[in-house]
Structure formats: structure tokens, C-alpha cells
Design a protein around this nucleic acid. Structure first.
Lengths: 346, 346
DNA sequence: AAGTCCGTGGAAAGCGCTTTCCAGCACGCT
DNA sequence: AGCGTGCTGGAAAGCGCTTTCCACGGACTT
């Protein structure tokens, strides 16, 4: 029941022209074709329901219309926002987005780039933090080199560690500014839900936060840094450790919003009120934050825009990589942070 | 600087075997190859860094490894959850997901199916409600027919209107059950934020809700049905109309969660408390709801699971389409709905 | 009048792979 | 001996398209 596809050859024959002419008419080559033949080819193509075979075109042209997009988890609002940006630009350029998800496994990341390379994708956006894993980084760098050697372009949204074009969010300075603003609210004892120690984005935000506290003459004792997964559940789980640590913190900084969301839920479960008993802040400003009560203080990143920027870096081929686009983070203080009133977490 | 790719022919020559043998070794054909040659081919392939050209394979095999996924808006948690499910199954089957977004434009939907057809995608999941637009539906049905005639498989997540395998959420009966539960809370006057009139999912949920009210001997006057976009902002905007309508409603049902989120924010802006002044319920149970305060009452749909089911329908090719998988919705009453206490919206 | 150019159409050589078909060989039989 | 049988390797014919290269004819020069 699978019916044979109409081929260019059939169109050409039916229209009484050569294969070359048919191809020239139907794909917008630079070559002129007389009005008469052009009409004839176009007509028969439509009549026969001709649809070019993309694989054959890719093979003959040695280039595809595919753009790879690699994310850790498409259900995470951070990534789905970036994906929306990338997709918008790619589709408006007539390209096709291939979505790969890593589940935060660096090896899977390498695999995906390899697959995209096999498909001769013309460009690739890798969204998702780098890690401290040297071996995975090296493998990834090798794949990327191979990819670019093939003529593909690569952009990352994260840290500029791969020698590619990169959209770099201001993790350090954003967290630093946030720390200062929180200190200005009157907080003196902080705790940080720091995510996993090997994630660079998490490290950078923690480091920036510490720096901001230092600016204000404050310290962040090691005991006040809780590691956990970089997810909502990670944030939720970290709260138990946090409370057990009896840090006396009046303000908790979770290194991303979904962790902060989980943490707020856990704090509620423990009978603690935000912000009356403890202030909470996050990072990213994911869209779903808009309607939260209490509204979460955070550092706003223009996520969709970052996706668009990355896609543009990789599609408008002007300058040579590596270029870096720095994206500032804007501290947004909302209802989840307030002047410290109670005695904090003890 | 774009270096030529290593081809099978080069591997074969270097290993001193024929093209056929090299191909047989490197792609897991059924044909036996002696241990000695196999080793030699594998070795040289690795040494040379051989990577098969996916386009060439697709052309020669007349089938690709691509699975299409069509959604309205990947940043919407409803779709990103479904996408996560589809992606998980597809990737674990060694396939590659092509993501297309329509921006809710039915013509774009047709375009995307056409593109996927050109790429000889082996399967296709269309997530996103059908509409009442007959012409768009017909075009889409034609594309789908062409797609399946090519040997591709198609599944939808929505209404079973396209003659394809379909995962059908229980929109009617879910909304109906919800209405009854809300009535049981004591509500007598309701308003519905109904989304756009041409979206079947919105219509079904509205109809189900009305039916549920009827079960309880209640009515939903036309003036209590507000149409708007099917988005967070649509829900937000609808509230102004709702309040202007002076319906006296004590409970508002938004036909999806993101609309309910927007509505709750707008109600707050108008100085109304949820649930004290007015109860609010949604539909879908998107993941971000978990941490909302007050927690939103809704009808839970297993979104990721629905994505997985759709992907399985289309990848495990057992029975002939159209098959229908019905997915029940579970009413979950949370803090956003309570016994009516005030006088409602007047 | 001879030569030059340009514009247009077609033949054919790929692009990198899969797969059919055939040849050769070593067995095990009758 | 003679002969099917089963197994393995290779030659070559595609898969559907793009693009180079050539041929041809007419319009222009000189």
C-alpha cells in the first residue's frame, strides 16, 4: 500500500524536458530557464504531486537543512524557553530543527553531536551548562571540531569553554548583584542551594553570590552550602539538609528557579513561611514564575532571546568563531524576599 | 577548511575489501562476514574516523531514522511535557526527533507534515488540538494520507478526527466530572474561560463542563462563557471581560491550566482572593502547578505518558490504524477551590 | 564574412550508500 | 567421480538529485 513517490525524472519525462532543466526549475538555481519550459515543468510537477526527496538533495548538495538543538530536558522551562527561541529563528529561515535530549548525561551529549554530524546538520545549538568532567569535555570538543571541519557551525548557550560561538549568561555578576541586593535588605546569614558541584553554571552562580557577599563584608560558611540535583526535586530535597544544618540563615539562594520552587514547597511543608520566616531567591526568571505567590525574587535572563541569539550566531554566517555574546542578568526582587524578621533557620 | 569526510569506499579500499563487505560489516546487515575481514574493516573504520552519511543511507534504504513531532508552542508546559515523552521513546529506539512548531497556525501544520514527508520521516506525532476549520483539516488529512502512503506512521494527541492512531484525553468526561465535584462543593453559579471557539479541545471541555452542571440540575448561561486565547495571557485578559459581565459566579473554570494561571493573577490584580472570593479550576495538571499557592484544582492528564503512548503507537508497528488510546482525566481538588463563601463576581 | 559571446538545454558524472546477483569454494552425498 | 548445498566475497546497478561540461544558435563585433 506504500505508493511509489513521484521523482524528478518522472516530472522531466512527462514535461518533455531533461532532468537538468527540471531540477533547475524546481529548486531555484541561478541558471535561467525559458518561460515556456519553466511553466511546463511547474505545471506537471504540481499535477503529479512532486515532492523533492530531501535525502537525495542533501546527498547531492552535500548539505542539509537540519539544525540540531541539544538540551538536557525539554520539559524544563529553562530549556523549553530557549528551544522556543531557537525554533523560531530556525523555522523562519526555512530550516528544520532536530531536537536531542541528554538527560544531563555528558556522554549522550557527545552521541548527539555525532548523530547530527552523520546527518550533515548545517548548524548546532548546544544549550546546557558545561561540567568539570574533563574527559567528557574533551570528547565533546573533538566531536565539535569534526562537526565544524565538515562545514557545520556550532553555538553554545552556557560557558564559553568549547571554542565555539557562545551566548554567555552573566551567571557570576548576576548572582553577585543579587547577593548585594539581598544584603541591602538586611540579611546577614545566607544559605545557598548550590546544585551539583560539577556543573559550571551552578559553580559560577555560587561563586558570584559569594563574591557579592564579600563585597558587603559577609561570609558564606561552607556549612551553608547545600549540594543537590539541579532540578525542582533537588531543591525540594535540599531543604531537609538545610534545616538539619541549623545555619541560622534568613535568606536562601537557590542557584536556579526550579530548585527555588522545590525549596519553597519544602519550606512550606516544614511549616516555614516565605518570606516571613525565610526569604528565597532563584535565578533565571522562567516564565512560569510570573504567577507564583509569593512571587519569586530572581535574576532575570531573557531566555527565549538567548535561544534566538544562539540561533542567529549559527545561521547568519558573518564573522569567524569564536564569538561571545554576553547576556546580562537583571535582579528582580519580588515578594519572596523581605527584610529579615525572624531568627532564621535554626 | 572544511575537510572531506571519510567514505565507506575509502574504508573498503584501505581495508582491502569490497564496498559490499565494508557496508555489511558496518551496518549490521544479516549477511555473515568472516571474523578476519570484519575485524579489519572495523579497525580501519575506527582508525580513519569513519562516520556513515545519514542522507546517503536514507536514500539507499529509502527510509530515514527521523520522527517528526509537531506542537503548537514548545514553551507551553503542556507541549513540552508531551515532547519529553515522545523524545524519550524515540531516542531510546535510536531515532532522531524533528521538532516543528506551528504557532497555532493550521496552515503551518500542513507545511510541517509536508516537510517531514520530504525528509521521509518514518513516523510523526501531531500533538495539538484539531479545530473546526474544515479547509485546513482537509489539507492536513491529505498530507497525512500522502505521508502514510509513503509508509510513514502518524499518531495524534487530541481528537480522533484524522483517521490516524490517536491518544485521546478525556476532555468531555474530565470536565464533566470536575463540574460535578465543584457543584458538590456548593457552587451554583459558574463562569467558564472557554478559549477560542474553533479549538476542539476547548469546545469539548466546555461541553463536558456544561453536561456536568446539567447532571446537577445547573445551567451555564451564555453570558458566563468568556472566549479568549488558549494561553496564559488569554486567561489573564479574559478576567476583565468576566468581571464586566457581573455573572455572580463563585467558581471559574478555565479550560486549561495556563489560562487558569493567568486568570488567577488577573483576579489578584483586581483585588479578588482565591479561593475566598472566587474559586478557580483548570485542566491538564501541568508540572509547574505543583508548587503554586494556592494550589490549582484541575483535571490531571498524564502528559509525559501521553507523549510516550503516542510515540509507541507510531513506533511499535503492530496493528493497523486507526487505533484509539483513551486517557482518563482525574479530578484533583486543591486549595484554589473551596466552598463558596462570598457573593461571587458582581 | 569570420569570429566572439552570451543564453539556454541536455548528457552524464557524480554524491555515499545498500543490495541484488553471481562466482568461487569447500563440503557432504550418492 | 559427479553433483547439489551452503557460505562468503565482490561487481555493479541503483536510490533521486545536483552540477559540470558541452553543444547549439543567434546576436554582435571587427
Amino acid at each position: 500500500m506504500t505508493s511509489r513517490q513521484v521523482t524528478l525524472a518522472e516530472v522531466a519525462k512527462e514535461a518533455g524536458v531533461s532532468l537538468a532543466t527540471a531540477s533547475r526549475v524546481l529548486n531555484g538555481s541561478t541558471r535561467q530557464v525559458s518561460e515556456e519550459l519553466r511553466e511546463r515543468v511547474l505545471g506537471t510537477a504540481r499535477r503529479l504531486g512532486y515532492l523533492p526527496n530531501a535525502s537525495a538533495q542533501a546527498l547531492a548538495r552535500n548539505s542539509s537543512v537540519l539544525v540540531g538543538l541539544v538540551v538536557h530536558d525539554i520539559a524544563d522551562p529553562y530549556f523549553s524557553s530557549i528551544a522556543a527561541g531557537v525554533t523560531r529563528i530556525a523555522e523562519s529561515a526555512g530550516l528544520v530543527v532536530v531536537l536531542g535530549t541528554t538527560g544531563r548525561d555528558p556522554r549522550r551529549e557527545v552521541e548527539l553531536v555525532n548523530t547530527l554530524r552523520a546527518h550533515r546538520a548545517r548548524a548546532l545549538v548546544i544549550a546546557g551548562s558545561r561540567t568539570t568532567d574533563r574527559s567528557a569535555s574533551r570528547h565533546l570538543a573533538e566531536e565539535i571540531t569534526a562537526f565544524t571541519a565538515q562545514g557545520g557551525r556550532v553555538a553554545c548557550v552556557s560557558q564559553a569553554k568549547l571554542g565555539t560561538d557562545t551566548v554567555v549568561p552573566a551567571n557570576r555578576s548576576g548572582a553577585r548583584a543579587l547577593a548585594r541586593r539581598l544584603a541591602a535588605l538586611g540579611h546577614r546569614r545566607f544559605a545557598v542551594l548550590a546544585g551539583p558541584p560539577d556543573l559550571l553554571v551552578a559553580r559560577d552562580r555560587l561563586a558570584g553570590f559569594k563574591a557579592g557577599l564579600a563585597d558587603e563584608g559577609l561570609e558564606l560558611p561552607d556549612g551553608c552550602v547545600i549540594t543537590s540535583d539541579f532540578t525542582r526535586d533537588g531543591g525540594h530535597a535540599a531543604v531537609a539538609d538545610l534545616i538539619a544544618a541549623r545555619t541560622g540563615a534568613t535568606c536562601v539562594f537557590a542557584v536556579n528557579d526550579v530548585m527555588a520552587l522545590g525549596a519553597m514547597a519544602a519550606l512550606r511543608d516544614h511549616g516555614l513561611r516565605v518570606p516571613e520566616d525565610v526569604s528565597v531567591a532563584g535565578f533565571d526568571d522562567i516564565p512560569t514564575l510570573r504567577d507564583l505567590v509569593p512571587a519569586l525574587s530572581t535574576v532575570r535572563l531573557p531566555l527565549e532571546d538567548m535561544g534566538e541569539r544562539a540561533a542567529r550566531l549559527v545561521l547568519d554566517d558573518v564573522a569567524a568563531p569564536p564569538r561571545t555574546v554576553r547576556v546580562a542578568g537583571e535582579v528582580v526582587l519580588r515578594a519572596s524576599t523581605a527584610h529579615p524578621s525572624g531568627i532564621g533557620l535554626r
